[in-house]
């Protein structure tokens, strides 16, 4: 099990300087909706952006985290 604050911290570490928002979708601490605003997504396809998030979450995904709904954005310039 992972808490929203733990996941938020993990994502903030993996995406330094990013704005991270995490929401527990089902109240069961294993279906999360995350929004990450970071310049690292610039110029990448959605698939590539989401793969970066998958890599950041690593082995948690499909073990402690069953499902992850991802919204990635580049900061408004």
């Amino acid at each position: 099990m992972m808490s929203t604050s733990q996941l938020k911290k993990l994502l903030e570490e993996r995406f330094p300087g990013a704005q991270v928002a995490v929401r527990d979708m089902t109240g069961t601490s294993d279906h999360f909706d995350v929004e990450i605003v970071s310049p690292v997504f610039a110029g990448k396809s959605l698939v590539e952006q989401h793969k970066l998030v998958h890599q950041a979450v690593g082995a948690h995904l499909t073990t402690t985290i069953h499902a992850l709904q991802i919204k990635t954005r580049v900061p408004a310039s």
Partner: peptide, 25 residues
């Protein structure tokens, strides 16, 4: 696919992504 979760959508053999990407597209 190198994509750890489902669902996964493919169009013409190309990985498009999961339901969140589908919704955005």
């Amino acid at each position: 696919s190198g994509w750890p979760t489902t669902p996964q959508l493919f169009i013409n053999g190309e990985l498009i992504g999961g339901s969140d990407i589908m919704e955005e597209l």
